[in-house]
């Protein structure tokens, strides 16, 4: 009998490890999916508070619309380091504000960020934040915070397959990600659940739980199109359940894998608008 219990325990333990490994493997495929070595895009971010009216969630205020140009280039052997520039086009009150950001795959290496405010007339380095507590600041006033905008680190989570279900007519894995201790202390979320398209290794939906274990945000990825051979969600919706606010991010245009010079991803692009516009025009020409 003792032997039987031992075998039983071992088998259950082995099964759990298998599940975790498979789940991680699925998430690795999602993470490794080609998203292009460069991206040149124009994005609009629409945010508003909503209320339920006649069974529909409708805006309770005039939506705030931000439009920005975004240029990103991958670096490193695994293309997991990124340099990006974000330039605010609208609203007029924020026009010209721009950000330069360097993200690194290396665990513990802080993101480098610089901001240019046209009113200030100089490029200013921004503090990347404390790694021992959550980053709570809103990204441009949207429902995304700075943690949501960080590059996803696969090893920061343990994974478990919760099941398999059809979502939006696609067969999906339902996978739970729980942050490991080093991530948990600095994350806004205690766990996340992903709906991963089995065929395309693509996350269609995710649900994020706050540090108290309550549902916090739902993120939907819709209008998935193939751009330059790469799948891109042209519309991303973030529904903040806690604040009853919603942000919709839409790619007005996007091109991938076009050459972007290293010199474009420097401080010069923030402060020298002539250079920025000229190069951007060159890059955007390839959209035609």
């Amino acid at each position: 009998m003792k032997k039987l219990l031992l075998i039983l325990a071992m088998l259950i333990f082995t099964g759990a490890i298998c599940s975790a490994q498979d789940a991680k493997e699925i998430m690795r495929k999602v993470d490794d999916r080609d998203d292009g070595s460069t991206e040149i895009s124009r994005v609009s971010l629409t945010s508003y508070r909503y209320v339920k009216k006649n069974g529909k969630n409708v805006p309770a205020e005039k939506p705030r619309v931000k439009v920005m140009d975004f240029i990103k280039k991958d670096y490193g052997p695994r293309e997991k380091d990124h340099k990006s520039v974000s330039i605010m086009i609208e609203p007029k009150s924020e026009r010209g504000i721009s950000f330069l950001q360097y993200d690194y795959e290396e665990v513990g290496r802080d993101t480098d960020q610089w901001m240019y405010l046209s009113a200030m007339g100089k490029v200013k380095r921004i503090v990347s934040g404390n790694d021992n507590e959550p980053k709570t600041g809103s990204f441009f006033g949207t429902e995304l915070n700075y943690e949501d905008m960080e590059a996803y680190a696969l090893d920061d989570y343990t994974y478990k397959i919760l099941g398999s279900e059809t979502y939006r007519k696609r067969e999906c894995w339902v996978i739970e990600a729980t942050p490991v201790m080093r991530k948990a202390i600095k994350s806004n979320y205690s766990r996340e659940i992903f709906w991963v398209d089995k065929e395309r290794d693509f996350t269609l939906k995710s649900v994020l739980f706050n540090r108290n274990g309550k549902k916090s945000k739902k993120i939907y990825r819709a209008k998935i199109e193939r751009i330059d051979g790469i799948l891109v969600p042209m519309k991303i919706v973030v529904n903040n359940i806690e604040t009853k606010r919603r942000t919709t991010m839409i790619y007005e245009n996007i091109i991938l894998n076009r050459p972007v010079e290293d010199s474009y991803l420097t401080q010069r692009t923030l402060s020298d608008k002539g250079f920025r516009e000229r190069k951007l025009k060159e890059y955007q020409k390839t959209m035609m």
Binding site: S44, T46, Y50, N57, I89, I193, V207, I250, E252
Partner: peptide, 19 residues
Amino acid sequence: AAAFDEDEDEFEDEADTAG
């Protein structure tokens, strides 16, 4: 998780090209 979809289609779709 299966119940999370319940409000997904309850939003009036704002203009995609607002900007």
